[in-house]
């Protein structure tokens, strides 16, 4: 009985972590502009069709990130 309760407790502690990994949280403006926080390692395609860029791979150099539109 004690063993079963302990297993359930461990399972309960692990489940939220597992579900976070399965179902990613959505990004918000705060994901990009909160001073002191890391930017998320997002990978997006380039507009010129020349592959993708993973922002997480750009560490080691300072980065100026510009969200904009041509309109």
């Amino acid at each position: 009985m004690v063993l079963r309760s302990a297993c359930l407790l461990i399972l309960g502690l692990l489940l939220p972590v597992h579900s976070l990994a399965e179902e990613p949280q959505e990004l918000t403006p705060g994901s990009w502009n909160t001073v002191g926080e890391r930017i998320p390692p997002v990978e997006l395609p380039r507009i010129d069709g020349r592959g993708t860029v993973d922002l997480g791979s750009l560490r080691g150099r300072k980065l100026l990130l510009i969200h904009f539109a041509s309109w």
Partner: peptide, 15 residues
Amino acid sequence: VCGVEAVPDLTAVDE
């Protein structure tokens, strides 16, 4: 997918 709500937005990110 980045969740941005308005542009332009500029962020300086360290190394």
